[in-house]
Design a protein around this nucleic acid. Structure first.
Lengths: 247, 247
DNA sequence: GAGTGGTCTAGACCACTCA
DNA sequence: GAGTGGTCTAGACCACTCA
């Protein structure tokens, strides 16, 4: 046990202890007190640190497990959930063409630091002078473009991503957000509609101008509810397949 | 306390007590031991009945709360969740036209007991001789049809629904499944794609033959994982809007 | 065998609801 | 004030992991 003279700082004292402890642990996880995949101190140690019974500490842990922040493995320990696993559920856009075994190949067509367009500014809650990192990515299978993604990220938080992407082309971005920029995603919302394809996307899909496509607008937030990414993707109508499971 | 000489029957003895108790309570809820909205016995009484400590009983209850089976209200009691609330999350198909305040009007165009088509037979896990109850419903706003729903239900379980719907036209079916047929829905999956509208639907939408529409295929299951409903809905592409929130 | 999390107990005390 | 669920304790014992 570290010689910690100060008792652990706890949040709002009106909350029950187990929620104060959850908040404090959450704060430490977000502050990267433990790296993704590293074990937290044991129940006994944390209970001693917070001066509560093990039962109360377990209750705090239980909430964090429900929220997908940590994972507990019997006999081994308690671990911070990898962002990759936490957002696995987000990757449920399938493609009619795509064989289940083959992963579509990702390509980054554009990486730009830009002034923030008004639409993205609203979604990301940015001031007009703040810049964004804009990415244009595609997913293809056998040379056929299946998905065209326009991604808007607050440049301040994602400055490191720019240089990283100029040297690497990872198939999935979310794990990179975590490992390179220390950004953990916790919530997302998709909004689907059918629209004429923008010209750039239509030509990528080799579709005539104004051909219909499905537009998928995704907004993602971190644990504190701050918007982290705004993404507008297009698929051709014949390639579109989207599966949602509820409960 | 009822003079119950037999101790409560519990399931698989290899499971921890709290899971055995959850299973038994689940069984009673499904068997309609308490009607929707009725209070279960208190923690103390159930703990006594199952001969466990209150803590263990609370743990069993906790799982049922997580599963959305029951709701606990501090100071009042524990209640079986209304199917209506449990499936509220399923009603997230919006319509571009629809003002948020106005509820689209439901109309039932067809109610038929039919031989089961092969597609529905697979989805509902029925034998070839078993019949289905087929419903064709529309949702409209200001005389404009927004959604056309083709619903396939196992006739055996939904026999009462047929007569009910010939006399009533409820805006939502799921609460009726519960109150009239005693069927509780617990899981659902949607699969979206873009297809040419079937002729019947195209004419309802006043669209030309083979116009594109969005097809929403929904499969619903009860608590035991048995398929309960198979539903194929169509929306015109310009009316389509679908929102999913994750986590 | 040392260390971890999982189950379970038997109680105390508190907060909320409703008559 | 009687009845309900919510928080918390201090312990016992068990099951799993890993060296």
């Amino acid at each position: 046990m570290p010689a910690q003279t100060q008792p652990a700082a706890l949040t709002d004292r009106r909350l029950p202890r187990y929620l104060q402890i959850r908040d404090e642990l959450m704060r430490r996880i977000c502050a990267r007190a433990w790296t993704t995949g590293e074990a937290l101190p044991s129940e006994d140690k944390l209970a001693a640190e917070f001066s509560v019974s093990v039962g109360t500490l377990r209750k705090a842990m239980g909430v964090l497990v429900e929220d997908g922040m940590i994972e507990r493995i019997h006999g081994r320990g308690t671990f911070v959930t990898r962002a990759f696993e936490r957002i696995s559920m987000l990757r449920f856009v399938g493609f009619s063409l795509a064989a289940e075994h083959e992963l579509p190949q990702a390509a980054t067509l554009k990486i730009q630091v830009r002034h923030t367009p008004i639409s993205a500014r609203k979604k990301l809650g940015l001031q007009s002078q703040e810049k964004i990192l804009y990415l244009h990515r595609t997913r293809s299978l056998g040379g056929v473009v299946l998905l065209s993604e326009h991604i808007y990220l607050p440049h301040q938080k994602f400055a490191k991503l720019e240089t990283y992407l100029r040297e690497n082309s990872p198939p999935l971005l979310y794990p990179i957000y975590d490992s390179v920029c220390g950004v953990l995603i916790s919530q997302a919302a998709d909004e689907l509609s059918v629209r004429p394809l923008p010209d750039i996307d239509a030509s990528l899909f080799k579709q005539p101008q104004n051909a219909l496509g499905v537009r998928i607008e995704r907004t993602m937030e971190d644990h504190s509810g701050l918007p982290i990414e705004w993404r507008v993707s297009y698929v051709t109508t014949d390639q579109f397949k989207y599966v949602v499971e509820m409960r």
